[in-house]
Design a protein around this nucleic acid. Structure first.
Length: 787
DNA sequence: CGCACATAGATTTTT
DNA sequence: TCTATGTGCG
């Protein structure tokens, strides 16, 4: 009897502890052991579930389901008191009910982006406290694998100090392979080859596997040859591409069971977010790791799988229950984001997909407005409509950043930008040229890569003649040949350039360049990173060179300064800052998190990059057959389904209002075409829609004047910028004495503010960790309101 | 070697 | 239509 009531009390206490969650969410939180599949619809509080589940594991272990424990009268009284709200002594609660609580370091939580990993860490830290949170390995697939490979990769014949090539680096290697193998780039575009290789690696196929499957296929035989050569070169340069990071970790686990066993015991509890986006190699990785303890929880939404083209296999989530015996499946269908009408709109289209697990999002909240479907005369009219509607929304008390414009492809942003420029609407375009893709940033990073690793031929090639040093194609080829033939580092060859007749003409330049790298390599051991960067810019002449470029050069120098800020905040936050670890962090970093809640501007982005975000008002433009769905997907039902999921993702970003638009006539890539309205519009139940047809007015003569200036966008922007009194300084409103909160360091008081470039260096006395210097714009730091 | 001009190619891209 | 690349000349 006592046991029975203890179990019920224990459960009630846990229910109370997690009382902010709905019953399905709680089910996910309490199911700690064994395989768990959480099908988390859009806006269903997925991250909250993940965070609370981990908190439950660490605080209470398997308390909810465990049947064996018993309790004293005293303890039973305490539980009753806790449930009645008479006490909130959590430490005592843990003491009484916890059953084999999980050690934080036994948990591996995998996400897809660094941003998601960072958010997860912050939220874990808030709920569990920093000490426990720090011990949890919350990382991306790639960074988790890199950590493993740094320790173990020598077993696969690589050196542990390998470098990581980004897709740009990879493409350069491919191009150089193609030219050496005499394969024409026209016939075999490097991009296509690279994606074939990537696909192979996603499926754990090594060059020899591809070679074995060539048969009589000419195309395949070429790909196989290039793949073999490409992989050879990567290995010679001791480099891994993004796909290698996963593939080689899996291979390591397959080849070395003792290594696998070590990590199985290390990570007894595994959690994977966005599981619908995993590829085969990632599936393999996770199943190997989980196969001993079988505590694998995956969270995802098959309806939001939109990365098939990148190798994601939706089957991973659809088949999870078959692959892992006794899986507990939990559906999260209550939505906390959108109005019921928006959810109905989304539901009404997604139910047309065959390959999905049936589910229906619902909300407790309001019904909301109907979805507006605007039929424009052409793309300018569409853009004007959006601009006008946003201005309207703002006039009625909204903010610009309540609005987002989503499109199928980046090329569609241009015309809307123009309309915004003309209407004076502030906007930000996400995507496009990324910060770390800028030439000057890549150049500087290439310098640093060579300083860090003298063997990095690829990076050396990039900057050997940047700024111009008279070292051209021919010198480079010679240098590379000598390096390969004699198996020495390129710097070694450069130091002794005079000894090689083919290099003798350029010997002095090469020698002094080698000397410069030697000096910088030495300095790198003692100097802080930002100082090293300064030295590098001066000694290499790169700063001089940029200055000589005029305005554009100044701009680029500013970008380099931004990199410097990154270095400073890295140095502040890293436990053991070093050049190599900085480069590693950078190599796995992309700037998806440029979205800044504090800038009041309309955001524009592709639907793909909007996944995971939410906005009050969402505009989805170009809802036309041929554009969305893209004409390239017409033939295959599978691909149409992926487009439909994309539409579902787009619609479910909206909290309050959803606007869909299409144009009767549209100019794209220089040619005008007439597209039918998207099938996805037709799939929406008619009574969910409010139609506005601007093409009708046009035929009756009342033509809305919708001229959008034909001056090229960049010039228009430049003109507006030059009219501005000064380049708008980034708003830095930190002052001495302000209370601030930082993601990692917690709360503190600003003790000094020093303005720099377009940023400010803050010195903050943190309550817990003491004084730190941070860059205002780069560090994730916010002011706390005093009222 | 460096610049001016021509030309292809243009879904989507968490690392 | 735009823009990132490649080629040919000075």
């Amino acid at each position: 009897m006592a046991e029975q009531s203890f179990r019920d009390l224990k459960r009630s206490a846990l229910q109370k502890y997690f009382n902010k969650m709905n019953s399905q969410q709680k089910k996910a939180v309490f199911t700690v052991n064994g395989p768990v599949l959480v099908l988390a619809g859009a806006g269903s509080g997925k991250t909250t579930v993940i965070v609370n589940r981990i908190a439950n594991m660490i605080n209470f272990g398997d308390a909810y389901h465990n049947e064996t424990s018993k309790a004293s009268e005293d303890e039973i009284n305490f539980l009753s008191d806790y449930i009645d709200g008479k006490t909130d002594d959590i430490a005592k609660l843990k003491d009484i009910i916890a059953v084999s609580p999980v050690k934080p370091w036994n948990i591996l939580a995998i996400t897809f982006t660094n941003k998601a990993a960072g958010e997860l860490r912050t939220r874990l830290s808030n709920i569990l406290g920093e000490d426990d949170a720090r011990e949890i390995n919350a990382a991306t697939f790639h960074s988790a694998c890199v950590r493993i490979l740094r320790r173990e990769i020598d077993k696969l014949g690589y050196s542990n100090s390998f470098t990581i090539y980004d897709s740009d680096d990879s493409q350069r290697v491919i191009k150089s392979c193609l030219s050496d193998l005499n394969v024409s780039e026209q016939q075999f575009p490097p991009k296509a080859i690279l994606s074939s290789i990537s696909k192979a690696k996603d499926n754990m196929l090594f060059p020899e596997d591809i070679e074995a499957s060539v048969g009589g296929d000419f195309r395949k035989s070429i790909i196989s040859k290039v793949y073999t050569e490409y992989q050879k070169r990567l290995k010679n340069s001791n480099a891994l591409d993004f796909d290698d990071i996963i593939m080689l970790t899996v291979q390591l686990f397959i080849d070395f069971p003792d290594v696998l066993e070590y990590y199985q015991n290390r990570y007894r509890y595994i959690l994977v977010d966005e599981y619908q986006d995993t590829n085969h190699a990632q599936f393999k990785l996770v199943s190997l790791l989980a196969s001993e303890h079988n505590n694998l929880c995956v969270v995802g939404d098959d309806d939001q799988s939109i990365y098939k083209f990148r190798g994601a296999t939706i089957e991973n989530i659809l088949n999870f229950e078959n692959q892992f015996e006794n899986t507990v499946v939990i559906h999260l269908e209550q939505n906390y984001r959108s109005t019921q009408r928006i959810l109905n709109t989304a539901n009404s289209i997604i139910k047309n997909n065959q390959g999905r697990k049936p589910k229906t999002l619902w909300t407790d909240g309001e019904l909301g407005d109907k979805t507006v479907v605007y039929k424009a005369q052409d793309e300018m009219d569409e853009a004007k409509f959006i601009a006008k509607t946003i201005l309207d929304n703002v006039k009625h008390g909204g903010k610009f950043n309540d609005n987002v414009v989503l499109y199928r492809m980046n090329a569609q942003s241009n015309i809307i930008e123009r309309a915004f420029v003309q209407s004076g609407i502030p906007y930000r375009v996400l995507g496009g040229l990324k910060f770390f893709d800028r030439k000057e940033i890549k150049d500087v990073l290439a310098y640093l890569a060579v300083i860090n690793n003298n063997n990095d031929m690829l990076r050396l090639k990039r900057i050997i003649n940047e700024p111009k040093r008279g070292l051209g194609e021919s010198t480079l080829t010679m240098l590379e040949e000598i390096t390969m033939d004699l198996n020495i580092s390129p710097l070694e060859a450069m130091r002794n350039a005079a000894d090689y007749p083919v290099l003798s003409k350029k010997a002095s330049v090469l020698k002094s360049l080698a000397k410069m790298f030697d000096t910088l390599s030495d300095l790198s051991k003692t100097l802080p990173l930002d100082k090293l960067l300064d030295e590098l810019l001066d000694k290499s002449g790169y700063r001089e060179y940029l200055k000589s470029l005029g305005d554009d050069g100044i701009n680029r120098l500013e970008n380099i300064n931004e990199l410097k800020s990154t270095m400073i905040s890295y140095a502040n936050e890293a436990e053991e800052p070093s050049l190599s670890s900085f480069l590693e962090e950078i190599s796995l970093y992309t700037d998806v998190d440029k979205l800044d809640e504090f800038v009041d501007a309309v955001y524009m982005m592709t639907i793909h990059s909007s996944k995971g975000l939410e906005f009050p008002n969402v505009f989805v433009v170009g809802m036309e057959e041929g554009i969305f769905p893209s004409s390239r997907t017409f033939e295959s039902e599978d691909e149409i389904e992926e487009e439909r999921r994309l539409a579902y993702v787009a619609f479910t970003r909206a909290q309050k209002r959803l606007y869909l638009s299409n144009a009767a006539q549209r100019m794209l890539f220089g040619t005008t075409s007439r597209n039918f309205p998207s099938r996805f519009i037709k799939e929406i139940e008619p009574d969910l829609i409010e139609k506005i047809d601007n093409t009708v007015k046009a035929t009756t003569g009342a033509i809305a004047v919708t001229t959008v200036s034909s001056i090229p966008l960049q010039k228009q922007i430049a003109k507006i910028k030059s009219n501005e009194p000064s380049k708008q300084p980034v708003e830095i409103d930190f002052a001495e004495g302000d209370r601030v909160k930082h993601n990692i360091f917690g709360e503190g008081t600003v003790i000094s503010v020093r303005k720099m470039a377009n940023d400010a260096m803050l010195e903050v006395d943190f309550d817990k960790v003491g004084t730190k210097k941070l860059m205002a714009n780069f560090a994730k730091i916010n002011k706390i309101d005093n009222n």
